[in-house]
């Protein structure tokens, strides 16, 4: 009986909690279709005359379409590069022993612990020397390799039995073939997890693009959104319209890849 009562209490808490989780998103959407929101002090759950004028304003006053494309392009490129660089390195750490390999791997892991903030000043100077301030390449370069990705894929590759490689070696396959035809296809779930993580990280990254990008047309969504606040101080409908636009692609990706994301996060905790 007691067990049941606890269960009911937990259920109620969890469902109320879920409402708290969803409400801010819902409210952002409602605000974005309520022109003049923020001027009245009694919020309306159902807008009197819903309209998309906030979205129109957003695209009129800002190169918003371009900004969405910037974010998308950078996220796709970052993800592509990270998949390639990480899987190649992970293969070496999993399959190709050499002297000092453990030390090299430890250095890779150590870079994961470094806060971005420590690197901000010298990286900025480096980019300035290379003439990459206010360029997409400047945003992209520091994130083409990911120690986290190497770690994740190495773990996955280690669980692929080496008997498969040995059989392939007997058949005359070299490392390129074992990598491409045996190991990679077998770690597809880990590749999927890394894809989603890289994409979301890039899509949501803020500090570095904020520092590098200057031209309004080149900014990424989070940077442009942060700037919106200043320009549309009281126009909450416009600010929320921008937020909704930046949530939508992420939401779509999330719905289809939830399994890989949650697996990835749960897996990091177990290590």
């Amino acid at each position: 009986m007691r067990k049941n009562r606890n269960l009911i209490v937990l259920n109620i808490i969890v469902i109320l909690g879920a409402l708290v989780m969803v409400f801010p998103f819902l409210w952002a959407f409602i605000t974005s279709i309520s022109p003049g929101a923020g001027l009245s002090s009694t919020p309306q759950l159902i807008p009197d005359n819903p309209s998309l004028s906030a979205y129109v304003q957003l695209f009129d006053r800002l190169p918003f379409g371009k900004i969405v494309l910037n974010s998308l392009g950078l996220a796709v490129l970052t993800t592509g590069f990270q998949l390639i660089t990480s899987s190649l390195a992970a293969y070496v750490f999993s399959r190709m022993p050499f002297r000092g390999r453990n030390v090299v791997f430890a250095v890779y892991l150590a870079t994961m612990m470094l806060p971005m903030q420590v690197l901000v000043v010298p990286l900025f100077v480096e980019m300035k020397t290379l003439g990459l301030i206010d360029s997409y390449l400047g945003v992209l370069l520091p994130s083409i390799a990911s120690a986290f990705g190497v770690f994740l894929l190495r773990q996955a590759m280690n669980s692929v039995p080496t008997e498969l490689d040995q059989a392939a070696t007997l058949d005359g396959a070299g490392h390129f073939r074992i990598f491409g035809l045996i190991v990679l296809p077998l770690v597809r779930p880990a590749l999927a997890t890394l894809t989603v993580f890289s994409f979301l990280n890039s899509w949501n990254s803020f500090l570095w693009p904020l520092i590098i990008l200057r031209t309004p047309e080149m900014k990424t969504l989070p940077v442009a959104l942060a700037g919106l606040q200043g320009q549309f101080t009281t126009q909450w409908d416009v600010v929320m319209a921008g937020s909704v636009i930046s949530i939508l692609p992420m939401l779509a990706l999330y719905i289809f890849t939830q399994k890989y994301i949650i697996q990835g996060v749960a897996g990091t905790g177990l290590k």
Binding site: A28, N204, L225, V239, S243, L251, Y254
Partner: peptide, 13 residues
Amino acid sequence: LPVVSSWIVVALV
């Protein structure tokens, strides 16, 4: 859901 959203959006909302 909020975990995968960007900090900026969360902060603005």
